[in-house]
């Protein structure tokens, strides 16, 4: 009797488990699993958004088109330049800022919040502010002229290829620097005081303290932050979209997401856009997998 009741209790609990899980499984199926499977499928067809003719199976030709397309490789190059150009300074400077913040005894919270403040703004607003700063008569030129002792030089922030790419990097750097600083601060905060105190008692100076204690123990955090930044940068869209729709030349800014968007929405070539999405997906999948691996090993144990 008792046994039977226990058994039915278990089944009842299993049933409730499913009841709690099923609603979101439905959403995941409709808006995550189906689209990604469908994306693989669509990338072999030449669907056109406006055409009434049924899409035709074209095999790998969307992919071969892309691999032979100079525009596609340009957008790959743009994305790579943006990613490398953003993530290295971001990681280096957020680490420096975090170490500096943790080495002072007062105003730690203030500095963290101040550096974090730009992350609160939406990316559209961030791009808008910087568009005005990069205006030929704007603050960026004024600042550069004051710094380099020149007068009235226009640094072409929004027209020269190199400067334009730099501009988008500056916007991104500005928006996310505080974010990663705070991540590093919490990483440093997790290092036991006993370790740093022991090093100081042994006569280590700050330089040695950083290279011998803090940095080695922060390696997992650094790795995690690096992969996270790279993933973020690979998906960059808003800044480039805003800058180009404000009249900046498209070619130097045509990153892969912008290219997917334009191919699908302006050229109506769904098949080709999906093929690009799949390629982006494969790259980001690799990075995300790496991130999950890294964050699993993130917890350092301090004996």
């Amino acid at each position: 009797m008792r046994r039977k009741r226990g058994f039915s209790m278990e089944r009842k609990k299993a049933l409730w488990g499913w009841i709690f899980v099923i609603p979101s499984l439905l959403f995941f199926s409709a808006f995550s699993f189906y689209p990604i499977i469908n994306a693989f499928y669509e990338s072999f067809f030449n669907r056109n958004l406006l055409s009434l003719r049924p899409p035709r199976f074209v095999g790998w030709s969307n992919y071969t088109y892309l691999f032979n397309s100079r525009d596609f490789w340009l957008s790959v190059q743009n994305t790579a330049i943006f990613t490398v150009g953003t993530f290295i300074p971001l990681v280096v400077f957020s680490l420096i800022l975090a170490v500096f913040i943790m080495s002072i005894s007062r105003f730690r919270r203030f500095f963290q919040l101040a550096f974090y403040a730009p992350a609160v703004l939406s990316s559209v607003v961030a791009a808008l502010i910087w568009l005005l700063i990069f205006d030929p008569r704007g603050l960026a030129n004024q600042g550069m002229n004051a710094l380099l002792g020149t007068t009235g030089v226009n640094y072409n922030w929004l027209s020269d290829t190199f400067m334009l790419r730099l501009s988008t990097i500056v916007v991104y750097f500005w928006k996310y620097i505080g974010y990663f600083t705070v991540l590093f601060v919490s990483g440093i905060g997790a290092i036991p005081h006993t370790l740093t105190e022991a090093a100081l008692i042994d006569g280590a100076n700050r330089w040695q303290l950083f290279w011998r204690i803090t940095f080695p123990l922060l390696k997992p955090t650094t790795l995690l932050v690096s992969v996270m930044t790279m993933i973020q940068c690979l998906k960059t869209f808003s800044t480039q979209y805003l800058f180009t729709s404000a009249g900046a030349p498209t070619r130097p800014l045509n990153v892969i997401t912008l290219s997917i968007y334009n191919t699908a929405i302006k050229d109506y070539r769904i098949g080709r856009a999906t093929a690009m999405s799949i390629l982006l997906f494969l790259v980001m999948f690799a990075f995300t997998w790496l991130q999950l691996r890294v964050s699993r090993t993130e917890e350092v144990t301090f004996m």
Binding site: F28, S32, P35, E42, T274, L280, F281, F285, L292
Partner: peptide
């Protein structure tokens, strides 16, 4: 709650973290 397939459900859901929105926006 313990039920058969629980681990599979969890793994499937976690797997969607590897699908960036930007990659599925057109099919979506």
């Amino acid at each position: 709650f313990k039920f058969r397939g629980r681990t599979l459900v969890f793994m499937l859901i976690m797997a969607t973290m590897m699908i960036p929105f930007e990659a599925i926006m057109i099919p979506l």
